[in-house]
Design a binder for these strands. Structure first.
Lengths: 192, 192
DNA sequence: TAATTTGCCTAAAGGTTTTAGGCAAACGCA
DNA sequence: TGCGTTTGCCTAAAACCTTTAGGCAAATTA
């Protein structure tokens, strides 16, 4: 029997595809092995354990999503950039629900600090340059935007918006309009 | 050997506590059985399977959260109600991270329709009565609020805001200020 | 070509899930 | 109080996933 040509890279990529097909939670070392037509134990040379596999898929998804987001915002500013960036998130979630779920996988702080998550934060700040927000308000806004993108995508994937009118598409557009207005009229900290 | 006095109710409640201790994903029929000092098979009279257990924990958490939210908004209106409602969500996530994660567990649409999720939606709409939003804008706003609460709580639980200044507490307050401003100045649909 | 490294395999132990069938405690009723 | 029925937890067992240890052969290097 020849070799299957496994590498950590290929294993992780296969895991990401599997996540899109069956859901991130259902990703299993055994199933990935099956896809390569290889015995389970063979994967343990390329991945430490099941948790490690999931973490790597999460990191992979974060990178992929950051790449897309970077492409989307390139050459844009203001609301244009905001909308392009936000759409990169939503589209990723719709095209790759499993990977998008993976991108929300909780990482320990060390891993998170070395992940593409920091690129995401930097890009979000870059977009806020189009609005007039000084620190610490900028950080609050970054967290709000992260919450909205994260939350909307996850509710949409869970089917939360799919069984009532108006359509999710329309809500998304209006939510982005609203966020743009909000960022242009960010309230001053009330004097206590 | 006497009987353990298992009921679906008690099993689900124990599962919810377990979720808070070890994380919702780690909730397992076996571990719940261990807690009751009972053989695993015994639980299968009270719960159909592992998926069913998780679904029931999710429904339980949704009810509990809806009760808290209802208490919080009672007798309040406007920004007062918005803040109380939002805090009910965040506090629940901080006190019961496992249950809060359970409350985000994807339910099939039939189950979701019979869940306390509809109470959540109704309460959100009630809060929006304090603002001047006609349909379909009200629905868009409901979805935005759901995304923010859901997203913020989940990022906070994942530790997303815990390793940088300013503190999450402050961001949360400012996010709510911002949402209040936004709801009072919700943009009109641009004429195409 | 010989030596070494690398890659996948077999074997095996331990844990979770789920079903089937059994026995005894609790309950309902005469 | 005693009898029959129901209910609740148990044993047994099969299927699957995880993970480690050790082996052999293919690929790489010298």
């Amino acid at each position: 029997m020849g070799r299957a040509g496994l590498t950590t890279e290929r294993v992780v990529r296969a895991g990401a595809e599997l996540a899109d097909e069956v859901g991130f939670e259902q990703v299993t070392v055994s199933e990935v092995a099956r896809r390569f037509d290889v015995k389970v134990a063979s994967l343990y040379s390329h991945v430490r354990n099941s948790q490690d596999l999931k973490t790597r898929i999460a990191l992979f998804a974060l990178e992929e999503l950051a790449d897309r987001a970077a492409d989307a915002v390139a050459g844009r500013a203001g609301k244009d950039a905001l909308v392009a960036f936000a759409n990169a998130y939503r589209d990723y979630g719709r095209e790759h629900p499993g990977r998008a779920t993976a991108a929300r996988f909780p990482l320990d702080s060390e891993t998170a600090a070395a992940s593409a998550g920091v690129r995401h934060a930097r890009m979000t700040r870059a977009i806020l340059r189009g609005y007039d927000l000084a620190e610490p308000e900028q950080t609050h806004a970054v967290r709000l935007l992260g919450s909205v993108f994260h939350g909307y995508s996850s509710l949409e994937t869970a089917g939360g918006f799919s069984h009532s009118a108006p359509g999710s598409e329309e809500s998304w557009t209006r939510v982005l309009d609203a966020l743009d207005v909000l960022l242009r009229n960010w309230p001053a900290t009330p004097t206590p």
